[in-house]
Structure formats: C-alpha cells, structure tokens
C-alpha cells in the first residue's frame, strides 16, 4: 500500500522536526542540542532533521501535521496548546510565578508533567518545556509605565483566549494578528504595540518600529516540545523512546543558559538601537489583574485549583 516499507535502505530513523522560529533563536539552539544528543545516544541510528522558519507550516498547522502523522516533532508556544486543552492556558495567567526559580521548579516537577500529559488524548506526547522567558509590552508611540497607560492602545497578542482576556483586563485592546504580519502592522499603526520576550522583540526587528519596552513581565509562557503519538507508539522502539525523552530533558538546561544569554544580548542591543527600556512597578499591574483571577475562579474552577497549587509552590520562593 505504501512505498515507505521498501523506502529507506539503511535503518536510520529520521524524525522531522518543524517549527516557526529562526535558526538564530535560543529555542532553536535547544532543539539542535537535542538532535545532537539523539544522534550520539543512538550511535547514529536516529537522526532529527530540523525545519525552522515555518518551512512546514505555522505552529497550529504543524501541530495538525503531527496529529496527521507526516511530521514527527514540533515546538509550539504553550499558548497555542490552549486551542486543544484548557490545562495549557494556565501559563497565560498573569503574574503567576514569583520568579524564575519558581517557574523552573513548577515546569520540572510533577505539576509541569501533569500539564504536559494533558496533550496525550490529542495524539501528542509532550517531551519537555523550553524557556521562553517572560513577556512584556512594547509600544510604538506611547510609553506604558502603569496599567492606565494601556488604555486605548491596541496590542497584538497571540491567538490565545487567555492572552486576549489578560490584555483586555489590563486595559488594552487585544488584537490577535499573525506574528509574520506584525512588523508592518506596527509600522503602519494597525496596532500600537505588542508583547513578547526580549529575544523575540530583538530578533523580529520590531524594535525598529517600537521605541518603548516596558519590562512588566506579565506572563511566562514556556515553549513545549511535542512528538506525534503515531511516531511515539508505532515507529519508535522502547529504547528509542527513552533516547528521545532523555535527549529532550538533557537539552533543557543548555537551552535555559542560551536563553539567558540571548535575553541579556537582546536588551543591550535594543537599548543601543534607541529603545527606552522601562522597569515599571509590577504591583499596580498585579492589582489590575485581580478580575482575571476572579473570572477564572468563577468560570474555570479546575484551572483555578491548579493556579492555587502553583501559588502554593511559590511560597518557597518569596522572600
């Protein structure tokens, strides 16, 4: 029925990994490290081919291709996973993590694993989280120093329900448009600003058209590495599965270092390019987010429970 059975002459298992980032991005470097580790651990019997820059489609489309079974691995933002399973929207809750250590503790621990496993009914197996830092606002004409400054500004957000809600609750007007169209949208004034982490702000060159960067760090939405259930169950052996899982987890600390470096470089570079970096008081922003928690408590009690559990964990990290 297929040519695949008589296809590859050697026994090398080739896994195709498609994602939307540029190959200079620190998350791409993490995946590269994972591919190296897989190759080493399998003595060259497994290979991961990486297709960056949306070569195989946007994040949502590539996820579909994982479910369909023609692409094996992908990296998506946890925000994109919301479209499938509500558990992932936990990361879009503003000001949930006390600090970076708190976030890493949650991702590496049982709570993180539980959220990752929520992808399974959707033909997706979660391998690990990659650090995607904290997201902050950047604006073209008007600096944002306190929540009130967001009033009347249309802010581009990801295609995520909670991201839209969060920006609207903080006072902005959320406008989901695609990442690829954002540069022109900022330039032409279709939107007044956007929100993202420092490396993305820098690499997308959005700093050329946005002169204010407000480091309020409202959310920390990690990236998620996923493998197709079809690949996982039908193509990989028990041993190969272990290799892939180990390689993914081992690439995480390396990726976090890369991320930190990239964040520092990015902030330095955009400042040099004339962007004013604003370090606002986070308190007013957190207070303005209260309605978000209230609404979550009323509408999504399960999610709220998860949220309190994470806050519980955060006690260890408050000073």
């Amino acid at each position: 029925m297929t040519f695949a059975s008589c296809g590859p002459i050697d026994d090398t298992v080739v896994l195709r990994l498609g994602h939307g980032l540029d190959s200079s991005h620190p998350v791409h470097k993490g995946m590269e490290r994972m591919a190296e580790l897989v190759y080493e651990k399998s003595d060259g019997e497994m290979r991961i081919d990486i297709y960056p820059n949306e070569q195989l489609g946007t994040e949502r489309e590539t996820l579909e291709l994982l479910q369909i079974g023609s692409v094996d691995i992908t990296k998506v933002s946890a925000a994109v996973m919301e479209g499938f399973t509500r558990k992932f929207s936990i990361f879009s809750v503003p000001f949930m993590f006390v600090n970076e250590e708190h976030m890493h503790e949650m991702l590496d621990g049982p709570i993180g694993k539980r959220v990752l496993d929520a992808a399974e009914p959707y033909r997706l197996v979660g391998l690990c989280y990659y650090d995607a830092g904290s997201r902050s606002f950047y604006t073209t004409d008007r600096p944002v120093r306190k929540p009130e400054d967001l009033e009347g500004l249309s802010i581009r957000v990801q295609e995520s329900v909670s991201a839209i809600r969060m920006v609207n609750i903080l006072g902005g007007s959320a406008t989901p448009i695609s990442w690829g169209e954002l540069y022109t949208a900022l330039q032409q004034g279709v939107v007044d600003g956007a929100e993202n982490n420092p490396p993305s702000f820098y690499l997308s060159r959005h700093y050329e058209v946005s002169k204010y960067y407000t480091l309020n760090e409202h959310t920390a939405v990690p990236d998620v590495l996923l493998i197709s259930s079809n690949t996982w169950e039908n193509i990989l052996s028990e041993e190969q599965r272990e290799i892939v899982q180990e390689a993914a987890l081992e690439s995480v600390p390396y990726q976090r270092e890369e991320w930190e470096k990239a964040t520092e470089e990015a902030l330095e570079a955009v400042e040099k390019a004339g962007v004013e970096i604003i370090y606002p008081d986070r308190e007013p922003f957190m207070e303005a987010s209260e309605p978000f928690y209230e609404r979550m408590r009323a509408e999504q009690p399960e999610l709220y429970e998860l949220f309190t559990e994470i806050q519980e964990l955060g006690r260890e990290f408050t000073d």
């Binding site: 029925m1 297929t2 040519f3 695949a4 296809g7 489609g57 946007t58 489309e61 579909e64 291709l65 369909i68 079974g69 023609s70 079809n230």
Partner: peptide, 21 residues
C-alpha cells in the same frame, strides 16, 4: 512525491491540509 516517504493516509491528509491552509 510524498508517498515515497509517507504512508497513504497521512500523505493524502497532509496534501489536503496544505490545500486548505
């Protein structure tokens, strides 16, 4: 071309998806 490296069902579904998207 896709049938060279992918099974029938995933292959046709993939091309259908590319057409739609």
């Amino acid at each position: 071309t896709l049938l060279v490296s992918v099974d029938f069902i995933p292959a046709v579904t993939t091309v259908a998806q590319r057409l739609g998207t």
